[in-house]
């Protein structure tokens, strides 16, 4: 099958099998920034945005991306760099494997909430992003400070 979708703003036409998941198709098209983690819908490493909503690309049927706008971390590189500076400042990023999915979920959360979410809301929204290095505390501090800075701008 052939699907046509917009990836990070660029129209692309990609071959895929009917039962294939989006992770495989994106990586085959060279988007290695989409990480393949658990591949069972549990870790959040493969998160991408489809029409602005965060989804697990390992559990998203690739053919359903036909005609949709798919955003990987590369598509939000400028915004992600701003957030990454807060992660660095808090010592919250270690191996970095979860970072693309984690950052995309944070950016989606920022867009979804009209005001700054509290810590419980942040933890709830990020429950689907597992990190095996950080223990999350530094990440939570980084997110709070990033959101406050964004809100102040």
């Amino acid at each position: 099958m052939n699907i046509t979708l917009r990836i990070n703003g660029k129209l692309e036409s990609i071959e895929c099998l009917p039962g294939e998941m989006l992770t495989e198709v994106l990586r085959r098209a060279g988007h290695f920034e989409v990480k393949k983690g658990c591949d069972t819908g549990n870790c959040g490493a493969c998160t991408v945005l489809v029409d602005g909503k965060p989804v697990l690309s390992c559990s998203y049927l690739a053919v359903r991306a036909e005609g949709k706008e798919v955003t990987t971390i590369q598509g939000l590189a400028d915004e992600a760099k701003k957030f990454a500076a807060f992660l660095t400042a808090e010592g919250a990023d270690q191996c970095g494997f979860c970072a693309p999915g984690f950052a995309l979920t944070v950016l989606a959360m920022k867009d979804e909430f009209s005001s700054i979410p509290d810590e419980a809301q942040i933890r709830h929204y990020l429950a689907g992003n597992l990190c095996r290095c950080s223990g999350y505390e530094g990440q939570i501090r980084a997110i709070k400070k990033y959101l406050e800075a964004q809100h102040a701008e």
Partner: peptide, 12 residues
């Protein structure tokens, strides 16, 4: 439904 993995899976 809020205990079901994360927002990303609940969007699917």
């Amino acid at each position: 439904v809020s205990h079901v993995v994360g927002v990303q899976l609940r969007n699917i």
